[in-house]
Amino acid sequence: MKKFIIVLVVLLCGLFGVVGANTIMKLNNMDEKAKTTVARIENVEAAVANTREVQTRLKKWGYYTGNVDGINGPKTIAAVKKFQKKYGLTQDGIVGPLTAAKMGLSVSSSKSSSNYNSNDRYLLAKVIYAEARGESYTGQVAIGAVVLNRVRDSRFPNTIAGVIYQPWAFTAVNDGQINLEPNQKAYQAADDALNGWDPTYGAVYYYNPATATSKWIYTTKTVTQIGKHVFAV
């Protein structure tokens, strides 16, 4: 009887262990994908929210008669132009800094060498820490530079969040290491990259030759190797 009980307990534990671990791994994987999507949606929502704010103000002042839907369509552009005409601004239908200032809205660009904000710094530090915390400081800056080079490259999404959370782009996003809290060194590396440091001179890919599985990555042109990572264009 005792033997039967022991065997039963062992079997149950084994079964739960295998099924549970497998399921949790798959669900975690899905969770990461869900987070990826949320990050992208937040980004799109920010743009829509800005247009909504413009539409709300223009409607209140009688320039806009359409729906406040966050879509920068012909009616919104026409309303912006009317507003610009009234205030003697260039009538291009675009809410740039001058028009935004006249509307009492704030705009987000900066005199600094970069037009990035504190969220971008945080995201960049996270990806640097997750992907290269064991690398030299220059190796960490290089990872940040690759992300920023991608933002500027037409082949990739046009925002830092878009690049980092692009499905399958970074291993650290897939395996959840992106959620580790970055350290001070990673923040400094992010600052350097945002301020223009690029030890890779324009690389948009990097890989670890010891672990890379995609044959395609070897077709890229190598620029340099920093630590364990090969940087390529």
Partner: peptide, 29 residues
């Protein structure tokens, strides 16, 4: 302006889909 809107919606959709990066780059570009 409408065409730019179309492009940006295409790009937004494209960047969410779980498709291999190397094949997405040409479409994104």
């Amino acid at each position: 302006n409408d065409m730019r809107g179309d492009c940006n919606y295409v790009l937004a959709g494209l960047s969410v889909l779980p498709i291999n990066e190397e094949n997405v780059v040409s479409a994104t570009k």
